[in-house]
């Protein structure tokens, strides 16, 4: 079996597992919607204030929902021992890990983008702002998944891992949050958003090239 075939096998297995546990995949979405609805309740029903805050609320809620899904990247495989098989397999671990993260992105980030579009429309965002938010998420969430998986690998099998994971991950998420919300703010004012989009894409590509190796090193450090 070639390394690429092994990676696709990992990807397919994780996607199939996500499909079979649709309820678990839906939970972060429900959490996301709940966090978004907490803000109008806390701020009060002021449509103008809410419309200016909504892009930021959507982004922060998406980041929090992503963090809650992160332990799942490696936890199940660690519990049943298949993670150790991945680590000891003859194929490059960085590539196999990339398959897992791609599956995690498909089951976590893609539904989140759909949900953001739906909630944004429902709460009255204009089309340009909404496009900037969803486009920004499409370009920024790969970085969230990659950097988050690194923290997930570092904390795999630790007690109280989720809180620790959030502490490690949130500072590293700040650039994405900055460029994502700036794009939305610019779009709301009718300004071009290309620069922020390019930054998000560039950061994601950088993460795509470097983090798989760091994740492989982290898994070896934790399990080796």
């Amino acid at each position: 079996m070639s390394a690429l075939a092994a990676t696709t096998a990992v990807l397919h297995r994780d996607l199939r597992r996500g499909w079979r546990r649709r309820g678990d995949v839906a939970q972060p979405l429900i959490f996301f919607a709940l966090v978004v609805y907490l803000f109008p309740i806390a701020i009060g029903p002021l449509p103008e204030t809410l419309r200016t805050l909504l892009p930021a609320i959507l982004w922060v809620a998406a980041v929090l929902a992503t963090i809650l899904t992160l332990p799942e990247v490696f936890a199940a495989d660690h519990a049943d021992g298949s993670l150790e098989l991945l680590v000891t397999s003859p194929h490059p671990l960085a590539l196999l890990v990339l398959g897992k993260i791609a599956a995690h992105w498909c089951t976590g980030a893609v539904p989140l983008m759909v949900m953001s579009a739906a909630l944004g429309t429902l709460l009255g965002l204009d089309a340009a702002t909404l496009a900037a938010i969803v486009g920004g998420m499409a370009l920024g969430t790969p970085l969230l998944a990659l950097v988050g998986s690194l923290a997930s690998a570092l904390t795999v099998g630790l007690r109280g891992g989720t809180m620790l994971l959030a502490l490690i991950t949130l500072p590293l998420y700040i650039p994405v949050l900055i460029f994502g919300t700036l794009a939305a703010r610019n779009a709301a004012l009718g300004l071009p958003v290309a620069a922020e989009m390019f930054f998000l894409a560039g950061l994601s590509v950088l993460a795509l090239t470097l983090t798989p190796f760091a994740i492989a090193a982290a898994l070896r450090a934790r399990l080796g």
Binding site: L150, I168, P175, L182, A214, A217, R222
Partner: peptide, 23 residues
């Protein structure tokens, strides 16, 4: 070992975080 991975990732990230915050 785990801390070393995190610290190295942090070093790569510090300039990125700094310049994005400057932006």
């Amino acid at each position: 070992r785990a801390g070393a991975v995190l610290a190295i990732v942090g070093v790569v990230n510090i300039p990125i975080i700094h310049y994005s915050v400057v932006w």
